Simulated assay, not measured.
Amino acid sequence: MNKWINSKASIRLLALALIAVVGLAGCNYEQRVQNSTYDYGSKKKGDPKMLGGRMYGAMSSNPNQHDNLWIEYSTHLSTVVSNINGIAAGMVFLTDKNAYVGMTMDWTATGTRKTGGRKAKEQNNTGAKEGVYNVDTGSPYWNNQRFAGPYNSYMTVNDHNEISSELKQTIAVQIRKLAPAVQEVHISANMEFVNQLVQYAQEARMGRSLTPWVDSFNTLVKHQFAGGDYVPEPLHIQKRRGQARLENGGKTTP
């Protein structure tokens, strides 16, 4: 009898030990996910994504921080950012002072947006099920001048302050590893900002200098990150106006 009781007790202890191990494994798995770049929303204490000081956004009160002297498109950094979980596509521009990131986001990570959840989505992708681009009008046509849009598009976030701080920190850490001279890293998923940056990237990919567009670029980033009042026209419109002026002997055309 005592032998049976002891055996039963041993089995019970073994079962409890197994339950504890499974529970611990479950906790460890959950913690690993929260600490990984698949989760930017949990903000648990000790999350390695947020260790150390903030690496993104304004670092000084310099009013001329966005008066850049030159700009260049970084193919390598753009690829690095695009490969981060939660990001569909990223573009990185370097200047004599800063790094600027424009991006769209996908569904490969949670918590990429701080608040709002699905109700705050700026994209309506239901048209894809019906074989149309614009589900409201039934139009199958896409504006080829735009990279991101309100229909059948990867996610954008109008206010860059609504992007998860963990995601922005992850991006900034990667950029600073590869470009340590950068003073500030500014990040946005604003739809208009992204669409304009795509055109600068296209210029660079075609081997064209971005020097003629430095002032326009500065105006764009000031509007996005420093409360600037003016949004420059997209690059293709600026180029068209410039060509028209040349054809009219330098006269401005409407």
Rank of each mutant, 00 (worst) to 15 (best):
L13D: 08
T253S: 10
G90T: 01
S139K: 03
A226T: 02
T104N: 05
W4V: 12
V92T: 06
A189P: 05
I163F: 11
T126A: 14
V101H: 03
E30C: 08
A120H: 08
R241H: 05
F147I: 00
E130W: 10
L178K: 14
A109E: 00
L13Y: 06
A120G: 06
E203T: 07
Y40Q: 09
T110V: 09
N190A: 13
N190H: 07
G102M: 10
P254K: 12
A15Q: 01
V33Q: 09
E247G: 07
K119L: 12
Q169F: 08
Q145P: 01
L94C: 10
G131C: 02
L14Q: 04
S139T: 07
N6I: 14
S74Q: 11
N35C: 12
K43Q: 10
A181P: 01
T110Y: 07
K251R: 04
N68L: 11
Q169K: 04
V92P: 13
D106T: 02
Y151W: 14
G90A: 08
L77W: 01
G53P: 00
N6Q: 08
S153W: 05
A226N: 11
L220R: 04
V214C: 05
D229C: 05
M155G: 08
T252W: 00
A99L: 03
Q183W: 09
Q145I: 07
S165D: 14
